[in-house]
C-alpha cells in the first residue's frame, strides 16, 4: 500500500475533477480501497430523507433509505453527538445497544458490513454529515490504526464534504451549467408542471421507474431533500429554462 499521505494527494487531485455525484463516488471508492477498506459512505442528514453517496451494496442503501434507517443507525446517532472520529462494530459486544440497534448491525452484517471508522462533520446551521470507511470479513483489521492514517482519513472526509458542498452551493457551477442530463431536466420540468410520475412516464415515453430514477439522480445532484425542493432549486438556478 502507498503511504497515506501520497493517497491523500492523489485524492485531492482527483476530487477536483469530480463533476457529478457519480464522479465523487468513484474518487471516494478508489481511495477507500487504496486505504485498505472495502466501502465508503457519505450520509448527509438534512431534514427528511438523507442523501447517501456510497459504494455499499445498492441493495443495502436502498433498504436503508426505504426504512429510514438513519433514525436507527447507531453510527449516525453517535455522529450527531460526537465530534471526533470513532470506530464501530469491533469485536467487543456493545452493551449499550438496544435490541433495535443490535438488529440493525446484524442486518448490516448480512450485507457483509462488519466494522468501520466514521468522521462526524458539522456543516453550518446544525447540519450533520457522516463520512464512513467500512470493512467486511475479508478486509484486514482496522483496530489500532496509526495516527498518520487517522489524520489522512479525517482530511479526506472533510475535503470530500467541502468539495461536494462547493459543487452544490453553486460556487463551481458557473463552469458547469450541464449538471443535469437532458432526461433529468425533462422529468423535472414536467414535475414542475404538476405532473405525477405516471404522467411523466407517458409524456416522455419511458417507464415510471425510469422517471423515478432520473428525478432521484437530479435530487441528489442538487442536494435537495425532496423532489419538490429539487424542482425549486432547479428553477432557482435556471436549469429548466
Amino acid at each position: 500500500m502507498k503511504a497515506p499521505e501520497r493517497l491523500l494527494e492523489e485524492f485531492a487531485d482527483a476530487i477536483h475533477t469530480a463533476e457529478e455525484v457519480s464522479g465523487f463516488e468513484r474518487v471516494a471508492t478508489r481511495v477507500a480501497e487504496q486505504l485498505g477498506f472495502r466501502w465508503f459512505a457519505y450520509l448527509d442528514v438534512a431534514s427528511g430523507k438523507p442523501a447517501i453517496i456510497s459504494s455499499y451494496p445498492r441493495s443495502w442503501t436502498r433498504r436503508y433509505a426505504e426504512y429510514d434507517y438513519q433514525r436507527l443507525d447507531p453510527v449516525i446517532r453517535r455522529a450527531s453527538r460526537e465530534n471526533k472520529l470513532f470506530d464501530w462494530g469491533g469485536t467487543a459486544p456493545d452493551r449499550t445497544a438496544n435490541q433495535a440497534e443490535r438488529h440493525f448491525f446484524d442486518e448490516a452484517r448480512t450485507f457483509g458490513i462488519k466494522a468501520g471508522l466514521t468522521v462526524p462533520i458539522r456543516g453550518g446551521f446544525g447540519r450533520t454529515v457522516a463520512f464512513t470507511l467500512a470493512v467486511d470479513e475479508r478486509s484486514r483489521s482496522i483496530e489500532h490504526p496509526g495516527q498518520d492514517l487517522l489524520e489522512v482519513i479525517q482530511l479526506i472526509a472533510f475535503y470530500f464534504h467541502a468539495h461536494l458542498s462547493a459543487r452544490r452551493g453553486g460556487y463551481l457551477q458557473r463552469s458547469n451549467p450541464d449538471i443535469l442530463t437532458q432526461r433529468e431536466r425533462q422529468c423535472l420540468a414536467w414535475s414542475a408542471q404538476g405532473k405525477t410520475m405516471t404522467d411523466i412516464a407517458v409524456l416522455v415515453g419511458i417507464s415510471s421507474r425510469t422517471v423515478s430514477f432520473h428525478l432521484e439522480n437530479a435530487r441528489t445532484k442538487l442536494g435537495a431533500s425532496s423532489i419538490a425542493q429539487c424542482v425549486a432549486e432547479a428553477l432557482r438556478r435556471g436549469l429548466l429554462s
Binding site: 465530534n83 462526524p120 462547493a166 460556487y171
Partner: peptide, 16 residues
Amino acid sequence: DVSVSNDMELDVFDTL
C-alpha cells in the same frame, strides 16, 4: 457559523 469536523475548520473555498 463555519463547518467543523473533529478539531478542524474547512470551507468550500479551501477546495479551490
